[in-house]
Design a protein around this nucleic acid. Structure first.
Lengths: 190, 190
DNA sequence: CCCTAGATCTAGCAATGCTAGATTCGATAC
DNA sequence: GTATCGAATCTAGCATTGCTAGATCTAGGG
């Protein structure tokens, strides 16, 4: 059975290659440039091969999104553990906004473009849970209140990321804005 | 010159008809169903007529977005003026989330789908300024600090709207979440 | 060495955004 | 009233897209 095993492995490698290539293409030329033909060209297979791995183009973008969310979760974790607990909230916020700024196309796929990725249900992918868990952890143990705080600050961060990306907010006042945000959430009434 | 005046007026009416029809189509069937052919059919003109009014499909969606933002600004204003000043923040928040829930396609065009609408520059459309101004007003007079608070709470509201719409947040805890949000921003340190 | 099953490609369909060129319509001048 | 000219509008079609059916090739077992 080693033959079919190898086939399985090669198939998995190609699956990952498609995701990686789609992400690179999106980061360098924008998501509207990620077409089935261009993507098939870059991975050096024909278009139908893509459909052997994914149901459609949207599924490919969703796969990129999930991968990127996992990556961001890891960066949030690193940032949180690198500072004393009292500074965890600020560290998480900074890491979040840095990720959004560093990978705009990835961030789009994660939170702006249409998607079929479920955030709430039973089939929510593990990386999504991990990312949310990191934000909650900045507030302390996992309970209802901290989860609510996490949802709220996440919303604020998303808003800031979008506004920053669209050039609405000047980058210079960013530190001050972060101070205000962190202050609000640190002083949250019990 | 009354002839050309009438032409101008009819042209403006048709311009509005296109926007209105596009919005209706989006609300009833989703934005992916708003194609040039379907839209042209509904307004009972041929496709090229659309391009006599708008540069492309995205410009039509942007026009819908601006109109809807203006509508939301008016609803925020009504909500704010209907309650004592001390409850303005909560009133604005509720009105914002209600609008997002009541007009999901409009909300998508406003804040989720790709757009060329500028929020920050000199050519920012008046309705956008009005909407932002309403949120600022909930905090008091227009100054830097209140503008920052407005940006932050706006981000939080946007996050909540998206999460609500995608089914992530259960609707039942909504009141409690609003209490938390309003409490955070009402207790903002000077 | 052949034969089958799976993997892969070629070729093409339907739908999309957008536009050039033909055609129709309406206002103006005589 | 009619001819003329310009604007308004449509017909027809192009290029590109996502996606797929059917042909072709290839690897692995008998």
């Amino acid at each position: 059975m080693t033959a079919t095993e190898r086939r399985e492995r090669q198939r998995a490698e190609r699956h990952q290659l498609i995701i990686t290539t789609a992400r690179e293409l999106a980061e360098s030329e924008g998501w509207e440039a990620v077409t089935t033909r261009k993507l098939a060209d870059k991975v050096e297979y024909s278009q139908p091969v893509l459909y052997g791995h994914f149901a459609n183009m949207e599924a490919i973008r969703d796969a990129v999104a999930v991968e990127c969310i996992g990556e961001m979760a890891e960066e949030l974790r690193q940032a949180r553990l690198a500072v004393p607990e009292s500074e965890a909230i600020r560290a998480i916020c900074t890491a979040y906004l840095d990720f959004a700024a560093a990978h705009p196309a990835a961030y789009q796929a994660m939170f702006s473009l249409p998607t079929k990725v479920k955030w709430a249900s039973a089939e929510t992918p593990a990386p999504l849970r991990a990312a949310f868990g990191e934000i909650v952890s900045a507030f302390g143990p996992f309970n209802d209140r901290n989860a609510e705080l996490a949802e709220l600050i996440w919303g604020s961060l998303h808003g800031m990321a979008v506004l920053l990306n669209s050039g609405r907010i000047p980058e210079e006042a960013q530190e001050q804005r972060l101070d205000l945000l962190v202050g609000l959430f640190a002083n949250a009434p019990e």
